[in-house]
Amino acid sequence: MLSKKRKAYIGTMKTVMYISTGLTAMLVIFLVAYVFIKGIPHISWELLSTKPSYISGKTGILPDILNTLYIVIATLVFVIPLGVGAAIYLTEYAKNKRLVSVIEYAAETLSGIPSIIYGLVGMLFFCQFLGFKTSLLAGSLTLVIMNLPTVMRTTQESLKTVPQSYRDGAFGLGAGKWRVIRTVVLPGCVNGVITGCILSIGRILGESAALLFTAGFAHALNGFFEGLTSPGASLTVALYVYAKEQGEFGVAFAIAAILMILTLLINFSATLVSRYFAKKREL
């Protein structure tokens, strides 16, 4: 038989755990439900397909959607080769353990730096020093630095799962290092690259502080290359401006609902991808 004291301890601990987990669950459900209830009624085809007009007084978020898309594309185009290359250096080339730990420490430092600081340095370096002005390109390049550690880490992890015996087999046939990497190592890290992409897209979609001073607030409708060189608000920045500075909460919630749906989609696809590759590895 358990003593009274022990029973009380167990009971208290269990209760506290139930309450904590329940709170967390309710919080998530409330957030999703609230944003959807407030936001979905405001989503209309007109909102999604037009740009804001002072003449008609109507608001459209098409430019913000396109800007977000452009930023995602531009960021990924740069960050994937850079991150994958860095990971390959670390797992395949680097022999000096000191150097490896310095690089890994730097990557950890980068992932701990708050986005507002990225925004500031991005503004100083890309917008002013390199002369890109406030533009989607400057915003994207800022996000490249932010997401570099993510792509690097996921690629590195999947490179580690490529069996050493594949490399030995290829070297044993007289293949040079680069050929070994290209033919037997790189195909093995596809899952890491895809996971890195999904995580990065999630971060890019949710980012606002780093874009505020680098990409700006404009709502002009542009093509891809024109867009990259001009300022533009992403969905998150647009949400902020509509809510905080213009008090247009309907539009803000519509954007919030869209962002919430995208977040759900990204989490869902991340799970799918990891399940798919886990299954493939078993075969």
Partner: peptide, 30 residues
């Protein structure tokens, strides 16, 4: 302690919480 189904649901919920953009938190907070 959690039942596997509860755990799977909550893990999804926690990932969602991590993925929600900070401006959305700000908006609901406001």
């Amino acid at each position: 302690l959690a039942d596997p189904k509860v755990k799977a649901f909550m893990e999804g919920a926690v990932s969602l919480l991590a993925g929600i953009p900070s401006v959305v938190y700000g908006l609901v907070g406001m």
